[in-house]
């Protein structure tokens, strides 16, 4: 448990090794997660999401530099896709964050999705906990470039920043369900390009229809030149204040804790059921009957359910 000691003291090597352990599900990883849970829950988690090439990494780089001026310790988890064919990946988010790699108050970790859909990797939630215990006051989670339905980030982040760029589609894209509904702060990046105002108007119109208490603002930015960064930070702060004032902050954490428990149950219950010999043989037998059309899959399924003892 040397690593845990190191982690609590803010040792980078220990944090890095523990994230690897959890990512690889190395024996004992659950003990680590059990151990650190009590000390976690202090960091403020900011999700950065948006389509590929929208400027998520560049924006994260600039936001973190600004927050570092307040001398807060920051961690970044940057997720990129894993190849479904080779299992390999090229994680390239650090390219935009080179200056930060020399800042001792910043910890950057790249993660491959490793087959997980939804915009995050399986171990992202656990990595957030580790970096929380490591002492990061702000944790930025940059998702993979998302399309229309990768909304998992909202479950992990306190504030979700949706990064858009001009010219990706018409107003129908903006009123579709899914990704457009999850932003707490909207950013039109590359706002020096044609169509930025129009994109803003479309998003604002979409937001006008919303009944939610908190009305997200749409901010213009040119991240690469550092333009609009302070505005975005102010908006993140405004959302944070709203969460705390309305007790949503607590409420969200309750939802997320419940979900975490449910996840663990789901994950282990299937293992438990299908590793049972009796059930495996019953399943094999009933499968044959289903193929021969002697019984239907529903009857087979419910027969097996009857014999499951937890």
């Amino acid at each position: 448990m040397d690593l845990l000691q190191g982690l609590k003291k803010g040792n980078k090597r220990a944090a890095a090794k523990l994230i690897t352990m959890i990512e690889n599900r190395t024996e004992g990883y659950q003990d680590v997660l059990k151990e650190i849970h009590k000390s976690s829950g202090k960091a403020y988690v900011i999700g950065i999401t948006g389509p590929p090439g929208a400027g998520k990494s560049t924006l994260t780089d600039k936001l973190v530099k600004e927050i570092r001026k307040q001398d807060k310790k920051v961690a970044i988890i940057a997720i990129d896709p894993t190849s479904p064919f080779s299992g390999g990946s090229i994680l390239g988010d650090r390219i935009r964050m080179n200056d930060l790699s020399l800042d001792p108050g910043v910890f950057i970790r790249s993660m491959g999705t490793r087959g997980h859909l939804g915009g995050l990797s399986v171990a992202t939630k656990s990595a957030i906990k580790i970096l929380d215990v490591y002492g990061a006051e702000y944790i930025f989670v940059e998702t993979v470039g998302v399309g229309q339905s990768e909304i998992e980030i909202v479950k992990s982040a306190d504030t979700t920043v949706m990064v858009m760029v001009p010219g990706l589609g018409d107003d129908i894209q903006a009123i579709k369900a899914g990704i457009m509904e999850i932003g707490d702060v909207f950013v039109i990046n590359k706002a020096d390009r044609d169509g930025a105002n129009r994109t803003r108007a479309e998003i604002e119109m979409m937001l006008d229809f919303s009944n939610s208490e908190f009305k997200p603002a749409v901010k213009m930015a040119v991240a690469v030149d550092g333009k609009g960064i302070n505005d975005i930070i102010d908006e993140i702060e405004r959302h944070k204040e709203y969460l705390i004032k309305t007790d949503k902050y607590h409420h969200n954490r309750v939802t997320s804790a419940r979900e975490e428990i449910v996840e663990i149950i789901k994950e282990n219950i299937t293992d438990k059921i299908f590793n049972d010999h009796l059930i495996s043989s019953q399943l094999a037998e009933l499968t044959q009957k289903v193929v021969k059309r002697e019984i239907d899959p529903y009857t087979a399924g419910f027969n097996i359910l009857k014999s499951i003892k937890l």
């Binding site: 894993t82 190849s83 080779s86 299992g87 390999g88 990946s89 090229i90 994680l91 390239g92 650090r94 390219i95 080179n98 790699s101 020399l102 790249s110 491959g112």
Partner: peptide, 19 residues
């Protein structure tokens, strides 16, 4: 390396040894 199933963290150009 990616095609060989490895996770490659690519940092790009002009890196100092410290980085």
């Amino acid at each position: 390396l990616r095609d060989a199933g490895m996770e490659v963290i690519y940092t790009g150009l002009r890196q100092t040894p410290e980085q």
